[in-house]
Amino acid sequence: LFNDGAARRFARIRDFIILHYCLTRRRDSELWRHVSSMELPETLAFRMELWRRYGVLHEYDEEGFDATSWLAIHAGMDHWPERNDPVFAEIAPERALAALDQRRKAIEASVARMPQHHHMLLKMLG
């Protein structure tokens, strides 16, 4: 049971790493040409299809990285879904902007409570 779970965790991490390689636009060497056209593990191919067609960030059990990490790779590689979720059309732009502004303020408040980097390093080095 432990070995099965560990194998699944490694497979999820493998998929996350491969995602970086298969989404790159580099083609300047045999390595980059290969990774851009290699056959993907079925679990990754399924995830990428859900993202491409529907904008869904599918999560399996025993993930090594959460949906935010997967989104960061897709966004960083400029890999966006073909269409938006129709539910977005049901949300008034003013409501969406207000929710985003509320989120921004919550993040700013969290950051303001955190120690500055150099203070934390000094504390750790003691």
Rank of each mutant, 00 (worst) to 15 (best):
H34D: 05
H79F: 14
D15C: 09
M114F: 14
G126W: 13
N3V: 14
R9G: 10
A89L: 07
W80N: 14
L97E: 12
E62A: 11
I13L: 12
D101S: 08
L40A: 00
F46T: 06
R33S: 10
E42M: 09
D78Y: 13
R52G: 01
M114R: 08
L40S: 14
E30N: 03
T68Y: 01
R95W: 10
A67N: 05
F65D: 09
L125K: 10
A109N: 02
N84C: 10
M48G: 04
R113F: 07
Y21N: 04
H58W: 15
F46S: 12
F10W: 07
W70G: 01
D85L: 09
I91D: 00
D85C: 12
R8D: 07
K123G: 03
F10Y: 15
N3L: 08
G64P: 00
I18A: 01
L1M: 12
V87R: 08
L100V: 03
H118T: 04
K123E: 11
A109T: 02
H118M: 10
K123S: 11
P115V: 14
C22M: 01
I73F: 05
A99N: 03
L57W: 05
L121A: 06
N84D: 05
R52T: 01
A92T: 08
N84K: 14
H20Y: 07
V56H: 09
M114E: 13
I13P: 08
L50F: 11
A7E: 14
R104T: 03
L122T: 00
T68H: 10
G76S: 15
E39I: 10
G64W: 09
M77W: 02
A75S: 12
N84W: 14
L97W: 07
M120T: 02
D28I: 06
R95Y: 00
W70I: 08
K105H: 02
M77H: 07
M48S: 08
G5E: 13
H74D: 06
W51F: 13
S29A: 07
P41Q: 02
I107T: 04
D78I: 08
Y60H: 11
L57H: 01
I18F: 07
S29I: 04
E49G: 09
V111M: 10
F46R: 11
L71G: 12
M38L: 07
S110Q: 14
H20N: 13
Q102F: 02
I73W: 00
R104P: 00
D15Q: 11
S36P: 03
L100C: 02
L97D: 01
A11C: 07
D85H: 10
A6H: 12
F46E: 04
G126Q: 15
I73Y: 04
P93K: 01
L50W: 12
P81K: 03
R52P: 03
L40W: 05
F10A: 15
L121H: 08
L97V: 12
G76V: 06
E62T: 10
V35N: 00
